[in-house]
Amino acid sequence: MKPAPFEYHAPVSLEQALELKAQSGEDAKLLAGGQSLVPAMNFRVVQPGVLIDLNRVSELSYIREEKKAIRVGAMARERHLEFDPVIEKRAPLLHEAVPFIAHPQIRNRGTIGGSLVHADPAAELPVLMLALNARMKAKNISRERWIEAKDFFVGMFTTALEPDEILVEIEIPFMPPRAGWSFMEVAPRAGDYALMGVAAQVTLDEAGKCKEARLVYLNAGEGPLEAREATQLLEGEPPNDILIEETAALASEKEINPFGNVHASAEFQRHLAKVLTKRTLQQAIQRAGELQ
């Protein structure tokens, strides 16, 4: 179980990396933290002819507070997200959820950009980016463009990136005023792939009615899955237990599409989604109220 041979490049600038990517085309893989790519290479499921290692491109590793958003470099490690004070203050949903990603030994190496580009439907970060309304900056050798999270994840392990593009930056808007958040998942053991997980963020208006609610699920379909119909039940209404129950029922029974696996049937995944939706909504609404 050793990787197949490949040509190795370790650029030290983004410009060099973009040039290498343009030259080597689809046969080249970018190596970020390698916590998903290297296992796939060890199994020889993936056999890139060229490997472009981004770990020496230090200009891609940062977390910056701007006026209304956080800017995160694609090579920022998950461990840095976990302990960053700006993220704790401005995107508490992300702060709460990062410790659920695998184990510290993985988070020490794994990067935000690597996880987003890998687009595993069971991963936490794609779900969080969708819940937080983040957008991704992609660059190739001649231009750059922004892609909204809802357009970025296009399917199982598939994103909207073109073969010559590199994800360079993620922009995460600050949590709005009067908003509350919650992230919960169920995994057989801490750090395992979760059987089901939910990210919730709820914003109240001045009268205490629900202004905006977001519910995004992991392991519930081909990619991070947002329950849009269900949250519309809440929006414009003062939240109460009956509405929360109806929202959880609609999301878990109609909107998500879990496949089931050896650890959990699809039916059990739906059950978990229903319970977790209720709990995350209750916690998010409570937190939104406390911050009012």
């Binding site: 179980m1 190795y8 390698g34 916590q35 290297v38 296992p39 060890n42 199994f43 290692d53 461990r79 184990h103 510290p104 030994q105 993985i106 020490n108 190496r109």
Partner: peptide, 23 residues
């Protein structure tokens, strides 16, 4: 050799990491 068991954990610049997932 795919990052699950943890037997190959080492310190890389002082931080614990899987040595089977690093070249």
């Amino acid at each position: 050799e795919h990052g699950v068991c943890g037997a190959c954990t080492i310190l890389f610049d002082g931080e614990s990491m899987r040595s089977c997932l690093i070249f």
